[in-house]
Structures are given as C-alpha cells and as structure tokens.
Design a protein around this nucleic acid. Structure first.
Lengths: 200, 200, 200, 200
DNA sequence: GATGAATGAGAATTCATTCAT
DNA sequence: GATGAATGAATTCTCATTCAT
C-alpha cells in the first residue's frame, strides 16, 4: 500500500513533466499566446480534461514550463561553469554551441519573452521570471571573471559582459523561427571571438 | 473639388499613421496576440467601428505597423551608415545609443518578435517581415565592412557580424520590459568594444 | 450630441432592466443554479454575446436580480405601510395577497434563498442580501407596531412578529413551484387571522 | 456463508446510510446544484469511484437523501402527534423547538427546496417529493384538529393551518444560513401563540 | 463618416461517469 | 471492492467583425 502511494506520486510527477515537455513543443509550434489547451493535450496524447487533472489552468502550465526551462538552464550553465577540465573560452563555446543547437530553446526563449512582455500576465510571475533570469547570469558571469583573470576574456564588469553574452545568444535564438529563419550563417567561433582577449 | 479630394486623402493617411502609432503602443503594453481592437481604438481615442474605416482587419493593422517600423528602421540605419562625417565605430555607437534610448523600440522589437513567432499569423506577413529584417542588415553590414577595411572593427563575415550586432541589441532591448528591467547596467561603450579591433 | 449621450445611457439602462426581468423569468423556469446564460439570452431575445455587453458575468446578473427584487419589495411594503387610508390588518392583507399573487415572487424568493444558502457564492453578496432582508423587515415591523397600538394585532416584539409573518409568506411562496404545487388551498384571511388580536 | 451474505448486505446498507448523511452535509454547504460527487466523496471519506459502488448516479443520491429526510420527518411528527401524554399546543411546541434546533434540518430544508425548484431534476423525483411533503402534513394536521376540538388551537381548515405552520417553520429555517443568520430573535412561544386560541 | 451595440464562432474550464489497476 | 485518473460533453466567457443609427 505504502509502495503504491509512493508509486502514484512518482507517476503523477512524471506525467506532469511529460505534459510540460509536450506543452513546450506545442508552444514552439504555435507560439505562446496562440497555443491552446487542445494543442497541449494532442501533443501529450491525452484528453483536454486530463490536462486539468494535472494543472489548474493554462496559465499554470505556462508558469511551470517557464520555471522548468529556467531551472534546466541554470543547471546546464552551472555544470559548465564549474567544470575544471575546460578553459574559460571553451566554456563559453560549449554554452553557445549547445544553446544554439537545441531546438527547444527557441520555444523556451519565446515563452520567457512573452511572459515578461505580456502585460496581461500576472505581475508575480513576471517578477519571478525576471529574478530567475538575473540569478541565472551568475554562472556565465563567473566564467567571464575567470577568463578575465587568466587574460583570455575581454575586460569589463563581468555581470555586464555576461548580460551581453546571454542577450546576444537569446537575440540570435529568437531570429531562428522554424520556417522563417534569417538566412545568415551563425558561426560560434565568430561569436566567441567578440568576447575573447587578443593575445600577441 | 480636386483639392478637397487631395485634402481628404491626406487626412486619411495622417489618421492611419496615428492609429498605427497608437497600435504600436497598445501592442507594447499587451503583446501582439493579447492586444484587442478595443485597445487600439482606446489608445487612438476613436471608436472600434472607426478603426475598421481605416483598416480592413486586425491583421492588416499588424502588417502595417510592422512595415512602418521596419521602414523607419531602414531609413535610420541607412542615414547613419551613409554619413561620411562619422567613423565606423561612432556609427555603431550612434545606432546602439539611439536604439537603446528609444522607448518605442521595445514595442517594435516585441512586435516583430511576435509576428514572426506566431503561427496563427499569416505566412505571407511572416515572410515579408523576415525578408525585410534580412535586408535591413545591409546598412549595418556596410558599416562593419567599412570598419574592417580601416582596421577599427574586428574581422569576420560582415553580414554575420552585423547579425550578431543587431541580435545583441535586440536581445538587450527585449530584456528592458518597462517595470521589469533586468537590474544590470548597459554600457554602450562596453558593447562597442566587443566589436572593435584593438590597436597597439 | 448631448441629447444622444443621454439617450444612449437611458437606453442602456432600460435594456439592462429588461435583461434582468427576463433573467428572473428564466430563473423561475429553470432554477437559479441551472439557469444558463443561453436561457437568459433566449428569454431576452438577444444573443449570448450581447448579455455580456451589459453584464460582466453570470454572477453579476444574479447579484443585480437579487438587488432589484429586494429594492422593489422595499418600495412595495413601504408604500403600503405608509398608506394612511388602510388599517393595519388591511395592510398585512394587501401585502399577503399581492405577494402570493405575483408569479415572479416565486423566482425571486428562490433566487434569494439560493444566494444566501450557496456557499460557493461570494460572502460579500450573501452579506448584502442578508442585510437588505433585515432592513426590509422594517416596514412590516412598523405595521405590526401600529396594529398592536390600536389593538388589532397580537402582542409580541414587532420585529420578531414581522419576521414570522415574512417567513410564513416566503415559506408558502417556496412551496408553490410551478407544476409541482402542494395541493393545499391558501386562504389569505386564514393567514391574517393568525396575527390578528381577537376582540370581544 | 449465508451469514456472511447477510452481514455484507448489512454493511452495504450502513455505508449507504453513511454516504447519505454526508451527502446531506455536503449539500447544505454548497447547495444541491453546486454539490459535486467529489464533495460527497470527501465528506464521506471515501473515493469518488466508491460512491458509484453504492449509488447509480448523483440523481440517485439526491433521491435517496430526500426520501430518507422526509421519512425521518414523518416518523418524528407522527410520534409526537400520537403521543397521548402531551396536549396539542405542547405537541406544536415540541415540533417547533426540535425542528429549529436541529442543524441538519437546515440542510434538509434547503435540499427539498432545491429538488422541487430545480427544473433540471427529473420530474418523477420532484413529484414524489411533493407528494410526500403533502402526506407529511397529515400528522400536523391531526394535531391542529385535535387542538381545535379541545379549544386550544385557532379555527380554520386543519390541513391549511398545518400548511401555514410548516411553511412558517421552514421559512424561518431557511433564513438561518450558518454564518449569515438574520439578526432577529426567534421565540418558539411567540410562534405557538399565533396558532393558539385565546381563552378568557 | 463615426459610433458602439450585436453577433456567434471559438477558447478555457468543469464535472458526472467510466475504467484500468 | 476500492481507488483516482481519464474522458468529453456542456457551460461560461471573449473578441474580431458587422451593422443600425
């Protein structure tokens, strides 16, 4: 009996995660504000009613997708930042490459943008997303500082430089709308060189 | 008589422009897909019905706002690019400063963003916006090329570097949600230095 | 122009009243909690969407119907209470007769009951309805006091007796469900005699 | 074996009764039409699915709650009516006191009210409830007749007077919404005096 | 032309009932 | 039998567009 309760909780959690992932895909396809519960249900291969078994409302889902995305991003950048086997530029390179490679990042970036820029969305959520974004600059900021100390990254307030780096990547990501990509090549090395300190 | 017809046409054109500006503000406040015709009417201080006297549909308005914004942007960057009184870095500086200063740019950037990423919006519009965005990279690209030739800007495919420059500025712009700004300072000089060629 | 604005306001007010009356009929037919916006729209001979032009929500309509009903009841009893051409028992007789005759009173009584007994309804509304009910006892209470003073009505705390009188009438009203009436005759004179002071 | 079957039947009956009582509480809290199977399950401390093990449908539960309540009421009034140790007025007094004291009566009265006035409820049930209500007037009617014969109760058609008595008590009961009571004292003696025949 | 009420198609949400475990 | 997740029909509410004044 106790085992079943545990198992049920586990199952419920897993299904929630599944729906969140499917919601992200649905958002990637239709855009945050056009996505319908129907789309999320279809993508998750469950009924519309069932979505409401796991989430209170559509807003609730969007909130959770944003949270999940930001948390995963934090783990992703933190792991790279703390990896002592890589030098600073390689860390930025890695972040840039993986970030621009992941298809889901587009949807996730769009989502965060929408959440933040949509006045109809409850202030608390916008606040939270903003706060998390700011906190998520820290690992990048640490990499920048480290690079500046060993002379491989350009000088400048680390947090500000991190902000530019992230904005640049997000700006590029937003241009990569599936089906409507800007037809200009993106070269990770070129991007990294913007932040690299030339040595002679 | 002919004069009156001319005058009427002129009036009509002016009112359309007024509505477009107000629509941009309304969009900036509520997001492209949440904005209602009622919002645009209220912002323009006219009635809902009158909006339809000047525009065929909501989609029509979005299309026009996007077109107007992108055209003004093209004129803005082109003028700076062709100004022979400024050096290349100063041109970038000027674009960066003015762009980040203008409040309406935030709304306009959001709008383009939303138009391109919103699947419910007619493909033709998304196509047009994308094409114009690409073409609008040209003046910036020209500045980059010029700067590379006189050794003040870093090397790299000019169009790609221009793409990074614009993406960076747009990425930063999107973070500046009125009331929910990321609390990190933006220093134009720091941004320009990313693209500047160090001389010894 | 000023005339039109006035006229518009007047029209709007009249249509609201019309919808409220139709809503009361719809409620009378289907019961408070089963009544749908569709029913109210049909009864008012307007579209569902139009109902929302005049009222914010279904709850808003119920609230207004309750308010309107209680206000009309207050005017009704006050007018009778203050009529110096009738003696006290005639006043009670009149109230009783008219109240039990009016078909809409059934719906209205049901509505007030539902509002008060339904826990899902916002406390503020329940509070207001309760307060108004209490205040509306006053005219009846005045009649009772007057009758006691001239020896035609039984003794007892006037407000309490008024409460019994109103509860009795409301209790009877509630039994008169259209189509499911309790097959027992209601004799106004018999009811009045319960409250009358026998003289010898 | 046979004994087990008996025991099972007994258990099943007891659980049904338990659910019915809990359903009454749930209905009292949320109103007949707002009450959800979930509420009844929660109140009964069993699962939603289990409710359906004992009852065919929500309607079935409502029907049973109403039947149970009306039957208990019949037994209650019949016992008092037939009690030869009490005089007629004492009998009314007893009914009045106990009825107004019992908290569950409020819920039960609301329930009957709602069942009868709710058009979405099956006509057969509404019919049955109405018929039982009428039949349940008989014991009260008998008390009235008895009182009239010994000169302690006012004259009038006994069934009609009984109808007024019950309506008055039910009317008062309905005003006593937990937490939203009408702030007027209820004095059983005052009520009884309305029906008492003054002797000189 | 200007206005804002009217419309109805479409989206979010609820909940009685069923069903797999 | 017990459980609670799954279902989808039904309901409330929204909003672009039309239309009468």
């Amino acid at each position: 009996m106790a085992r079943n309760i545990e198992k049920d909780k586990q199952m419920r959690w897993e299904r929630k995660q599944h729906i969140l992932e499917c919601a992200l895909h649905a958002i990637a396809k239709k855009g945050v504000s056009s996505v319908e519960i129907k789309d999320i249900a279809r993508e998750s291969k469950i009924s519309v009613g069932s979505v409401y078994t796991y989430f209170k409302s559509k807003d609730d889902i969007l909130k959770e997708v944003a949270r999940k995305g930001q948390e995963e991003y934090r783990v992703f950048t933190k792991n790279i930042a703390e990896n002592s086997d890589m030098n600073s530029l390689d860390k930025l390179r890695e972040i840039c490459t993986i970030w621009l490679d992941l298809k889901s990042n587009w949807a996730y970036t769009i989502l965060l943008q929408s959440v933040r820029s949509n006045e109809t969305i409850h202030g608390e959520l916008r606040d939270t997303v903003t706060r998390r974004f700011t906190r998520n600059l820290e690992p990048i900021s640490a990499i920048i500082r480290e690079g500046q100390e060993n002379g491989t990254i350009k000088s400048g307030v680390p947090l500000e430089v991190a902000f530019y780096f992230v904005s640049l990547i997000q700006g590029l990501t937003l241009q990569r709308v599936p089906g409507y990509e800007i037809p200009v090549n993106i070269d990770v090395e070129g991007i990294i060189q913007l932040f690299a300190q030339k040595t002679h």
